[in-house]
Design a protein around this nucleic acid. Sequence first.
DNA 1: GTGAAAGCGCTAACAC
DNA 2: GTGTTAGCGCTTTCAC
Lengths: 344, 344
Amino acid sequence: MHKATIDDVAELAGVSIKTVSRVVNQEPNVRDSTRARVEKAIAKLNYRPNRSARNLASQRSHLIGLIYDDPSAYEIPSAGYVIRMQLGVLRACRAADYELLIHPCNYRAKRIGGELQALIEHARPIGIILAAPLSNMPRIVSAIEATGTPFVRLSPGKRGGKQYTVATNDREVSAQMTRYLASLGHKRIAFIKGHPSHKAVANRYLGYLDGLKQSGLTFSKRLVGDGENSFESGEAAGNRLLRLKRRPTAIFAANDDMAAGVIRAADLLGVKIPDQVSVAGCDDIALARQLCPTLTTIRQPLATMAERAALLLIEVAQKTIPGQLSEVVPATLQIRESTGPAPE
Amino acid sequence: MHKATIDDVAELAGVSIKTVSRVVNQEPNVRDSTRARVEKAIAKLNYRPNRSARNLASQRSHLIGLIYDDPSAYEIPSAGYVIRMQLGVLRACRAADYELLIHPCNYRAKRIGGELQALIEHARPIGIILAAPLSNMPRIVSAIEATGTPFVRLSPGKRGGKQYTVATNDREVSAQMTRYLASLGHKRIAFIKGHPSHKAVANRYLGYLDGLKQSGLTFSKRLVGDGENSFESGEAAGNRLLRLKRRPTAIFAANDDMAAGVIRAADLLGVKIPDQVSVAGCDDIALARQLCPTLTTIRQPLATMAERAALLLIEVAQKTIPGQLSEVVPATLQIRESTGPAPE
DNA sequence: GTGAAAGCGCTAACAC
DNA sequence: GTGTTAGCGCTTTCAC
C-alpha cells in the first residue's frame, strides 16, 4: 500500500514527471488529450502530491497563519469568535489546498512582538490573518510588518489604508440598530462603549450617534456609559444607567458581554426587559441566544470575513494582484426578545 | 537576510552536516566538545531546521491531528471546549516542535468516514486526537482505525481498553458533586441525563447513583430527567421536574447547557435559585460564570487532557513505548452561587 | 565519533 | 507541447 508518487503517475500515463506537474498545478501548455490521460492516471493511483516535497522544492509553504488573542486567557466567552474565524479560514484552505496555522497569544506578554516574529520566521506562512483586537495594536502590527510577510487585519468596522483589511460595516449597522430602537418609540437610548483600544468601539459609537441624528433624537452625554468589553464592566455601567432619575428606555451596548452584564444588572434591580427597558448588544455570541430574555444583537460575519482574508492572501501569494486592499462584509441585525416597544 | 541552512552551521562549526543533524536531533555519538561547538554555531546563525526538508527526508510529518465535532454547526456553545483542547495540544506541540492540524467536522455527514480517511492519508499526521463525542462513535473510530494511524480518544469518564484514551474521573467527581449536595441537606436530588450517544453521560449518571448511595439517599426514578445535551432539552426536563408535586430541592444536570436550561425554567416558573432549588451542572463552560446566579459545576481539565494525549502520540511516534494506554486526569468541583442549603 | 554520498518527491530552469 | 537536469535542505545508510 505504498503511496503513489509523481513518477508512478508519469509512468502510468506515459509522460514525463514535468507534464504531470503541469497538470497538477493547472499550468498551461498541455494538450487536452495528454491532460486527460494524466488525470486518469492520477485518479487510478489516487495520487496526492507530497506536501513536504512540494514546499521544499518551491521554497514556499502553503500555510496561512491565524493570530488571535487567546480567549482562554480571560473570563470572556470569545471562544465562539475564534471558532468562527477558524472555520472561515479552513473553508478557504480546503478549496485551495492550503493549511491553517493557528496561534493564540496573549497580547499583554512583554515579548509578544518577538514571539510573533519567531513564529513567522520559523513557519514561513504565505500570509498572516490578524484578528481584532490585535489588529488594532501598533506594537503587534508593526512586529508583523517587520517580517515582510503579507498580512490582513480583521477589523470590525475599520477599513485599512494602505494595508490589507477585511472589515464590517460596523458603523452603518450600529446606526441601523439605533434607528430600529427609535422606531420602537424609544427616546432615551443609552450606549455603553467598550474598551478604548478596540477600534470597533469607536465606530459603533459613531454609528450610535449617526442613528440618533437620523432618527431626530438628541444626544445626552449622561446616557453614555464606559465599559471595557467585559461582562462586569457592562454590569457596572448598566447599574449606573438604570439608576438614573430619567432612566433610559433602551440600552445599546458595544458588545454582547456588556449587554449580558446590563441584563444581569436589570435583573438584580428588578427592572423588566423588554417591558421597562430594551437591551441590545453587538456580536451575537452564543450566549445571546441563551440569555433570558434572548438578546437582540448585531451579527458579525466573522467566518466570511476570515474566509475573504484567506482568499486575499492566497491571491497575493499567487501573484494575482488582488482587486482591492480592503473589503467590507456587511453585518446584520438579529432581533430577539430583549428589545420591544418603549414604555409609556 | 538569507535563512541559515544545515550547511552554514556545519561550515561555521567546522564539522559535517551529519554531525549537525546529530546534535539537532539529540542523537548519541557526538563528543561533548563537538556538540557545544555546533550548538554555538546554531545559536549564532539562529538556525532552525527546515520543516519540509526534514519531513521529506525522514518520510514522516511532525503533525498532530485534532478532530472534533464542529461547534459552529449547532447552537450549543461548545466553542470553549474546542479552544481549550487546542490550547492543550498547542502546549505539547510547542515543547516538542510539532504542528497542529485542526479538523472540525460534522459527524452527521454521510461520508464522514471517508472524509477523515482522506484527511489522514493526505496530511499523514503522526497521530490523531479524537474529541468527544466523536471518540465514542464506532463509525468514526473504526474509520480512523482503518488508516493505521495511532489515535487517542479524549473521553470524559471512560477508560479505553486496548486503545489509547485520556479520560477524566467523571464518575467519581459526579459522585462527589452528589455528596456535596447531600451534605447541604438535600434529600431529593434530581439528575438530568444527556444524549445517550455521549458516553460520559452514562458515567455521570452512575456517579450520581454512587453519590446517592454513599450519602444514604434513596433513588427515585421520577427524579431522573432525559435531556440530550442542549439548552432546550435541559429547560424541558427542568420544567417537568420543577412542576412535580414533591419537587426536588436540587437538580444536577449532566452538562452546563442543560443546567442553564434548568435555570431558565426555574426563572420562568418563579422558583428561586438557590433558595428553593439548587442547580449544578457539569463542564464549566464560560456561560457558567455568567448565568444569574453563577453555576456550580464540574470543571473538566480539557486542556491538560489534550496535552497529555498529544504527548502520548509524540512518544508513540518516537517509538518510546508509552507507559500506559490510558490516562486519567482528575476533574474538580467549582462551587458557585447556584447551590446552597436545602430549604426546610 | 564522524563524514561522504545517496536519496526523499517535487518544482524550476532551460532545452528540444 | 513536452522532457531533461538540477537542485530544495534535510535524513539515512554505510564507510572510516
